[in-house]
Amino acid sequence: MSTAASSSTSETIAEPGLKIKVSTKEGEVFELDEKVAKMSQVIRGILEDLGEQNGGDDSVLPLTQVETRIFRKILVWLKYHAGHDKEEAPKAEEDEIIARFCEEIPEWDQKFLNVDQAVILEIMLAADYLDIKKLRGLCCKTVANILKTKTVEQIREMYGIENDFTPEEEEEIRKQTAWCEDEPPRQGSNH
Protein backbone atom coordinates (compact mmCIF):
# COMPACT_ATOMS: atom_id res chain seq x y z
CA MET A 1 0.00 0.00 0.00
CA SER A 2 1.17 3.44 -0.73
CA THR A 3 0.50 6.62 1.05
CA ALA A 4 -1.54 8.55 -1.39
CA ALA A 5 -2.13 11.84 0.26
CA SER A 6 -1.46 13.87 3.30
CA SER A 7 -3.61 16.58 4.70
CA SER A 8 -0.46 18.36 5.84
CA THR A 9 -0.51 20.14 2.52
CA SER A 10 -3.63 21.99 3.54
CA GLU A 11 -3.15 25.70 3.86
CA THR A 12 -5.79 25.97 6.48
CA ILE A 13 -4.37 23.65 9.10
CA ALA A 14 -1.61 25.45 10.81
CA GLU A 15 -0.58 23.16 13.59
CA PRO A 16 1.00 19.90 12.64
CA GLY A 17 -0.33 17.34 15.05
CA LEU A 18 -0.83 13.66 15.30
CA LYS A 19 -1.12 11.89 11.98
CA ILE A 20 -3.80 9.28 11.43
CA LYS A 21 -3.55 6.72 8.69
CA VAL A 22 -6.64 5.34 7.08
CA SER A 23 -7.06 2.97 4.18
CA THR A 24 -9.85 2.95 1.65
CA LYS A 25 -11.75 0.08 0.15
CA GLU A 26 -9.05 -0.38 -2.46
CA GLY A 27 -6.35 -0.38 0.20
CA GLU A 28 -4.96 3.01 -0.59
CA VAL A 29 -3.58 4.70 2.51
CA PHE A 30 -4.18 8.33 3.41
CA GLU A 31 -2.40 10.13 6.16
CA LEU A 32 -4.58 12.73 7.83
CA ASP A 33 -4.09 15.32 10.48
CA GLU A 34 -5.78 14.28 13.66
CA LYS A 35 -8.22 17.18 13.51
CA VAL A 36 -9.23 16.30 10.00
CA ALA A 37 -9.62 12.61 10.79
CA LYS A 38 -11.70 13.21 13.87
CA MET A 39 -14.37 15.04 11.95
CA SER A 40 -15.50 11.54 11.11
CA GLN A 41 -17.22 10.19 14.17
CA VAL A 42 -16.37 6.70 13.04
CA ILE A 43 -12.66 7.43 13.00
CA ARG A 44 -12.98 9.35 16.23
CA GLY A 45 -14.69 6.37 17.80
CA ILE A 46 -12.04 3.94 16.62
CA LEU A 47 -9.30 6.18 17.92
CA GLU A 48 -10.98 6.46 21.27
CA ASP A 49 -11.35 2.70 21.40
CA LEU A 50 -7.68 2.34 20.65
CA GLY A 51 -6.82 4.87 23.27
CA GLU A 52 -5.39 7.09 20.59
CA GLN A 53 -2.27 5.04 20.62
CA ASN A 54 -2.07 4.38 16.95
CA GLY A 55 -0.80 7.76 15.88
CA GLY A 56 2.78 7.06 16.62
CA ASP A 57 2.94 3.69 15.01
CA ASP A 58 2.10 2.34 11.62
CA SER A 59 -1.41 1.09 12.31
CA VAL A 60 -3.88 1.94 9.60
CA LEU A 61 -7.60 2.36 10.19
CA PRO A 62 -9.51 0.47 7.52
CA LEU A 63 -12.45 2.27 5.93
CA THR A 64 -13.64 -0.71 3.99
CA GLN A 65 -16.81 0.81 2.57
CA VAL A 66 -15.31 3.97 1.11
CA GLU A 67 -13.86 4.00 -2.34
CA THR A 68 -10.70 5.97 -2.95
CA ARG A 69 -12.21 8.29 -5.53
CA ILE A 70 -14.97 9.37 -3.18
CA PHE A 71 -12.65 9.57 -0.20
CA ARG A 72 -10.39 11.99 -2.08
CA LYS A 73 -13.36 14.23 -2.66
CA ILE A 74 -14.50 14.00 0.95
CA LEU A 75 -10.99 14.74 2.09
CA VAL A 76 -11.18 18.10 0.39
CA TRP A 77 -14.28 18.86 2.38
CA LEU A 78 -12.77 17.64 5.62
CA LYS A 79 -9.62 19.69 5.19
CA TYR A 80 -11.54 22.84 4.44
CA HIS A 81 -13.93 22.50 7.33
CA ALA A 82 -11.27 21.41 9.77
CA GLY A 83 -9.62 24.71 9.11
CA HIS A 84 -12.67 26.89 8.97
CA ASP A 85 -15.23 25.47 11.35
CA LYS A 86 -15.42 26.29 14.99
CA GLU A 87 -14.89 23.45 17.39
CA GLU A 88 -18.27 22.03 18.13
CA ALA A 89 -19.67 19.06 19.85
CA PRO A 90 -21.08 16.39 17.57
CA LYS A 91 -24.64 17.18 16.76
CA ALA A 92 -27.40 15.07 18.14
CA GLU A 93 -29.87 13.70 15.66
CA GLU A 94 -32.40 16.33 16.59
CA ASP A 95 -29.88 19.11 16.13
CA GLU A 96 -28.98 17.70 12.79
CA ILE A 97 -32.60 17.78 11.73
CA ILE A 98 -32.92 21.37 12.81
CA ALA A 99 -29.73 22.32 11.05
CA ARG A 100 -30.72 20.55 7.90
CA PHE A 101 -34.13 22.11 7.96
CA CYS A 102 -33.24 25.66 8.72
CA GLU A 103 -29.79 26.46 7.52
CA GLU A 104 -28.88 27.59 4.10
CA ILE A 105 -26.01 25.87 2.36
CA PRO A 106 -22.87 28.01 2.64
CA GLU A 107 -21.41 29.16 -0.65
CA TRP A 108 -18.27 27.05 -0.39
CA ASP A 109 -20.30 23.91 0.20
CA GLN A 110 -22.63 24.78 -2.64
CA LYS A 111 -19.68 24.89 -4.99
CA PHE A 112 -18.22 21.75 -3.48
CA LEU A 113 -21.46 19.92 -4.16
CA ASN A 114 -22.03 21.43 -7.56
CA VAL A 115 -21.47 18.04 -9.14
CA ASP A 116 -23.44 15.34 -10.82
CA GLN A 117 -26.31 14.10 -8.64
CA ALA A 118 -24.92 10.60 -8.64
CA VAL A 119 -21.71 11.94 -7.15
CA ILE A 120 -23.66 13.76 -4.47
CA LEU A 121 -25.43 10.55 -3.59
CA GLU A 122 -22.16 8.66 -3.36
CA ILE A 123 -20.76 11.35 -1.12
CA MET A 124 -23.89 11.10 0.98
CA LEU A 125 -23.44 7.37 1.40
CA ALA A 126 -19.78 7.71 2.29
CA ALA A 127 -20.51 10.52 4.71
CA ASP A 128 -23.10 8.33 6.34
CA TYR A 129 -20.63 5.47 6.65
CA LEU A 130 -17.98 7.79 8.07
CA ASP A 131 -20.60 9.44 10.26
CA ILE A 132 -19.94 12.98 9.12
CA LYS A 133 -23.37 14.33 9.88
CA LYS A 134 -22.82 17.79 8.57
CA LEU A 135 -21.69 16.61 5.17
CA ARG A 136 -24.49 14.10 4.99
CA GLY A 137 -26.99 16.81 5.85
CA LEU A 138 -25.55 19.11 3.23
CA CYS A 139 -25.94 16.38 0.64
CA CYS A 140 -29.53 15.79 1.66
CA LYS A 141 -30.33 19.45 1.45
CA THR A 142 -28.60 19.79 -1.89
CA VAL A 143 -30.63 16.96 -3.36
CA ALA A 144 -33.74 18.39 -1.78
CA ASN A 145 -33.03 21.74 -3.39
CA ILE A 146 -32.83 20.00 -6.73
CA LEU A 147 -36.11 18.20 -6.14
CA LYS A 148 -37.79 21.45 -5.23
CA THR A 149 -37.04 22.89 -8.62
CA LYS A 150 -38.49 19.99 -10.55
CA THR A 151 -42.00 19.18 -11.57
CA VAL A 152 -43.45 15.86 -10.58
CA GLU A 153 -43.10 14.68 -14.14
CA GLN A 154 -39.47 15.76 -14.28
CA ILE A 155 -38.72 13.89 -11.10
CA ARG A 156 -40.30 10.74 -12.47
CA GLU A 157 -38.23 11.06 -15.59
CA MET A 158 -35.04 11.94 -13.74
CA TYR A 159 -35.17 8.92 -11.48
CA GLY A 160 -36.96 6.53 -13.77
CA ILE A 161 -39.92 6.27 -11.47
CA GLU A 162 -43.06 4.74 -12.85
CA ASN A 163 -46.31 6.56 -12.25
CA ASP A 164 -48.29 3.74 -10.65
CA PHE A 165 -51.35 5.80 -9.85
CA THR A 166 -54.58 5.41 -11.72
CA PRO A 167 -55.73 8.66 -13.29
CA GLU A 168 -58.44 8.86 -10.64
CA GLU A 169 -55.99 8.40 -7.82
CA GLU A 170 -53.63 10.97 -9.20
CA GLU A 171 -56.45 13.42 -9.67
CA GLU A 172 -57.54 12.87 -6.08
CA ILE A 173 -54.05 13.60 -4.79
CA ARG A 174 -53.82 16.58 -7.05
CA LYS A 175 -57.07 17.93 -5.63
CA GLN A 176 -55.87 17.45 -2.08
CA THR A 177 -52.82 19.51 -2.67
CA ALA A 178 -54.03 21.77 -5.43
CA TRP A 179 -53.19 24.82 -3.36
CA CYS A 180 -49.51 23.89 -3.38
CA GLU A 181 -49.36 22.71 -6.94
CA ASP A 182 -47.65 25.76 -8.31
CA GLU A 183 -45.15 23.98 -10.43
CA PRO A 184 -41.65 25.36 -10.13
CA PRO A 185 -39.98 27.17 -12.98
CA ARG A 186 -38.25 24.88 -15.39
CA GLN A 187 -35.24 27.10 -15.73
CA GLY A 188 -32.74 28.68 -13.41
CA SER A 189 -31.34 25.59 -11.76
CA ASN A 190 -27.80 24.41 -12.06
CA HIS A 191 -28.93 20.86 -11.67
Partner: peptide, 9 residues
Protein backbone atom coordinates in the same frame (compact mmCIF):
# COMPACT_ATOMS: atom_id res chain seq x y z
CA UNK B 1 -43.52 21.43 -1.83
CA UNK B 2 -43.19 18.10 -0.14
CA UNK B 3 -46.88 17.45 -0.37
CA UNK B 4 -46.72 18.15 -4.06
CA UNK B 5 -44.24 15.28 -4.39
CA UNK B 6 -46.80 12.81 -3.07
CA UNK B 7 -47.93 12.59 -6.66
CA UNK B 8 -44.66 11.10 -7.89
CA UNK B 9 -45.62 7.51 -7.11
Amino acid sequence: KLLRLRRVC
